[in-house]
Design a protein around this nucleic acid. Structure first.
Lengths: 217, 217
DNA sequence: TCATAAAGTGAGTGAAAACTCACTCACTAA
DNA sequence: TTAGTGAGTGAGTTTTCACTCACTTTATGA
C-alpha cells in the first residue's frame, strides 16, 4: 500500500508537460501556491511572491496579467488535468480493485484518501479558499471535480449494490458519508486538535463505515 | 423538535448584555459580521462597513484601533460567551436527554446540529476563515471550542459506553466520526452540489452512525 | 558574430484603502 | 445657564500594493 501521489507532484508534472514555462515562471507558480496556502490569496502580495520565487516583481507580470490570473493558473491545470488524472489513478489503483467485501473496498479507498488528504493540506487549503471566496472559479472547479469523482465512484458503488455488499441508499449519500470522514480528519489537522495517527484513524473510520453501510440483512 | 437558536441571535444577545456598546457600535459589529461572511475579511473595506452600518468611517476607528480588532471583537464574544452558551444549551436540550438506545441519542444530536449548521452557513464561514488564516485567533477559539464541546459530549459518550449502547472506541474518535457528517453537509452546501433535504440527510446519517457505532455484540 | 527577440528587472506610479484628527453637537451635571 | 464630556463626523493624510515601462540581460538562429 504505497503513499498516494502528492498533489505537488501532479502539479509539477502538469507544469512541465503542457506549458512552455521557463524555470522562473515555474518558481512563481510554486511560490504562489505555497503563499496562498499559508496566508490566503488576499493577504499575499505580488512582492511576496516575487521575493519567495527569487525573481523581480515585473517578471511576475510578464506572463500573468494580474494577480487573479496567478490563482487561475494554479486552479486551471488542477481542474483540467490534475483532478481528472488523480481521479483516474485513484480509480484504477483503489476503487476498481476486485473486492469480495465492503470492508475490503473501504480499506482500499479510505486508507488511500486519508493519506492523500493529510499529505496535501496546503493545496487543499488553497482550493477551499478559491471555492469559498471566488465564485467565478467555484462553478468550474466544483463541476469538474464532482464529475470526475462521480464517474469513478458512481459505478463502483453501483456495482457494490448489485453484489449486495452495500446498503441500498442513494449514491450521493454513500459518497457524502464516506467523504465526510476525510473532511473530519482535515479539520482535526487544520484546527490543531490533538493529533492521532492516520492509520489509527483509518481503522476506526473503516470499522464504523463498514458496519454503517453494510446491508441490514 | 424546535429549530436550534441561530448564532446571530446569540450574537445580538451577547452584545446587548455584557458590553457598553452604543447603538452605532453594535451596528458596526453587525455590519462587519455580515460583510465578512459575504465577501471575506480581506475583501471588506472599512468604508464598506461604515456605509452598511450607517456611520462615518471615523466612528469605526473610535473603538476599534484597526480592522483586525473588528474581527477580534466578533470572535471574542464568540469564544467567551456564545460558544460556551451554545454548548450548554445544546447539552441541556439534546445531549443529556435520557435515552435508551444509541439511535435516540443520535437522532437528538444529529438532527439538531444539522439544522444548526445549515441555518448558520454564513457565520460558520467567518469562523472558518478566522481559523484558517488568522493563527493568532485560532489558538484561543479552537481551545475554548474544544473544551466546551468536550465538557458536554465527553460525559454523554462515556455514559453511553457504561450502558453498552455505544462501541468502545476512544471518545475523540466517536466525536470525530459524528462531527465529520456535519462538515460533509456543510461542504455539500458550500460547493453548491445538488441539494438534499436536511431531514432526509439526517435519516441516512443517523442510520449509518447508529449501525456504525453500535457495540458489535 | 551579431541582429533580433524574448525574458527578466526594479524603480516608479496611481488608486484604493487604512487610518487620523480637529471639530461638532447632543447630552449631563453643577 | 453653562462648562464639561465623549460619541460621532468626514475631509485629509499616509500607507500599501497591484501594476507599468524603459531598460538590461540572455537566448536564438541566420
Amino acid at each position: 500500500m504505497n503513499e498516494p501521489t502528492a498533489i505537488s507532484t501532479y502539479f509539477k508534472e502538469a507544469m512541465t508537460e503542457n506549458r512552455n514555462l521557463t524555470e522562473k515562471q515555474k518558481q512563481i507558480l510554486e511560490a504562489s501556491l505555497s503563499l496562498f496556502a499559508e496566508k490566503g490569496f488576499a493577504n499575499t502580495t505580488t512582492a511576496d511572491i516575487a521575493e519567495k520565487a527569487g525573481v523581480a516583481e515585473g517578471t511576475v507580470y510578464k506572463r500573468y496579467a494580474n494577480k487573479q490570473e496567478l490563482l487561475v493558473a494554479i486552479i486551471e491545470p488542477f481542474r483540467d488535468s490534475i483532478l481528472p488524472r488523480m481521479a483516474n489513478d485513484f480509480g484504477k489503483t483503489r476503487v476498481n480493485l476486485p473486492v469480495n467485501t465492503l470492508r475490503e473496498f473501504l480499506t482500499n479507498v479510505v486508507s488511500d484518501r486519508m493519506h492523500f488528504v493529510m499529505g496535501n493540506l496546503s493545496v487543499i487549503k488553497v482550493m477551499m479558499e478559491a471555492i469559498l471566496y471566488h465564485p467565478e472559479l467555484r462553478i468550474n472547479l466544483v463541476g469538474t471535480g464532482a464529475k470526475s469523482i462521480e464517474s469513478i465512484f458512481g459505478p463502483a458503488i453501483t456495482q457494490l449494490k448489485a453484489k449486495h455488499l452495500i446498503a441500498d441508499i442513494p449514491n450521493d449519500m454513500v459518497f457524502q458519508i464516506i467523504v465526510s470522514n476525510f473532511l473530519g480528519a482535515l479539520y482535526r489537522a487544520f484546527l490543531g486538535l490533538p493529533a492521532r495517527d492516520v492509520d489509527e484513524q483509518v481503522t476506526y473510520i473503516v470499522d464504523a463505515l463498514d458496519r454503517g453501510l453494510r446491508p441490514s440483512i
